[in-house]
Design a binder for these strands. Sequence first.
DNA 1: GGACTAAGCTGACTCAGGTCAATAAAGCCA
DNA 2: TGGCTTTATTGACCTGAGTCAGCTTAGTCC
Lengths: 243, 243
Amino acid sequence: MTTTQDPQRRPGELHCEGCSLHSSCMTRVLSQGALEAFDEIIQQPQPLKRGQALVQQGQPFRSLYLVRTGSFKQVVRQAGRQDEQVEHFFLPSEAVGLEAIGETHCPASVVALETSFVCELPFEAFEALAQRHESLRGELMRSMSRELRGDQRQFCLLSGRTAEQRQAGFLLGLSQRFHLRGYSRYRFQLAMSRADIGSHLGLALETVSRVMGRFQRQGLIKVAGRELTIRSLEGLEDLGEAP
Amino acid sequence: MTTTQDPQRRPGELHCEGCSLHSSCMTRVLSQGALEAFDEIIQQPQPLKRGQALVQQGQPFRSLYLVRTGSFKQVVRQAGRQDEQVEHFFLPSEAVGLEAIGETHCPASVVALETSFVCELPFEAFEALAQRHESLRGELMRSMSRELRGDQRQFCLLSGRTAEQRQAGFLLGLSQRFHLRGYSRYRFQLAMSRADIGSHLGLALETVSRVMGRFQRQGLIKVAGRELTIRSLEGLEDLGEAP
DNA sequence: GGACTAAGCTGACTCAGGTCAATAAAGCCA
DNA sequence: TGGCTTTATTGACCTGAGTCAGCTTAGTCC
């Protein structure tokens, strides 16, 4: 079942060229030669199962990761507090670990929400490669900048907004991210629990559940367990943008 | 009064070497030669007065800025909403505009909170320089990564915390930033209004005012208008870290 | 397949913090 | 220096969402 049991040291599916995510991955800007060099440094660790940690807060920072399949949450445990805070969710083709660059240790843990595969980029080798390829450097900078804008979006979602506005914004954000990566914008799995969503949005899990119910009764969405169907994108947008 | 009226094209205070902020500026990593090249590309625009915009949301992105003196707020006006959201405050030696890299237009406005001076780094020239100097590239990446971690901190502050915890965290954060830049950690000016703080923390301005009062009555701080004195760092920390 | 555990839903109650309103203080400009 | 505008403080009132608790459904492991 595990692809790494393949007798070859570098099985075919490790090559970026031909990877189904290539067009939305940061490698899409690389020339043929650079792509081959990139292939050389990529590692493909064992798949992670639901609940397993890809990165542990406090451990030495060594690698960036690109999500291939599945999804992750990034959680922070703060000094002197016993509860965890969900910072981010990562979907396929998104980069994990950008916030640790320049640090010796990882400021947050990253945990699989379902069985998930990643590409590992050992940071030293990655940096050396970026040294030589302007396009890769540029793409890394753009990724970081994009994440900064994503954080801005998240602030706007959290600050001074009602539970319904937050949740509408959250669902719309997910929808957009799935859409950008070639999945349906109207129908997707919520790999995260209500508690995870609540922590991410600064709401109690009961509130998440109630708002989901309300949205469903209003005909905006349909929820069957963790499968979400968006019935009215406009309705959600109106909510999210309301004063 | 304005330094730019100086007849010389490049008055002395434009040189990075000898700038009082040099040791906390991103240029501190540069070699002598690189520093001179850096001096060449830096512009020093007119000082901005309280309320003037350094960057206007929606305008073309052209430059990064480094705060020399004074302070700024970054505000976002969202489509379909009339109120503004304060995302960030910028203090001396901090970099403005990192979240616009890779975009054609600025995603937020940046407004002076008091009379302020900046160094302007036209992005094209800056990028060309970074091309040639690894240390500058590295420092830029570290700045961006540091800002990502700052955003994480901000999430933790906003999500599921009481007004007192947010405000304690906010004041501690300011204290730390001033301290890192060589100012007092116990006593500084709040250049921003209560409304700005409220918007930044997701609180009503009345709540900000009340919490300030409460902190003062508890002997944690002393507020005289916009001058803040921290009486008990530990007290604020206990509050911020409480479960 | 049954027992156990985790996840999700719903109701009742409470309170932190939002809103509205009135007042006071502080800048600001002529 | 006085009038004007902006900013801050304080009080009264009300509501959105947190907490606690009980129940249901789904998932997992012998």
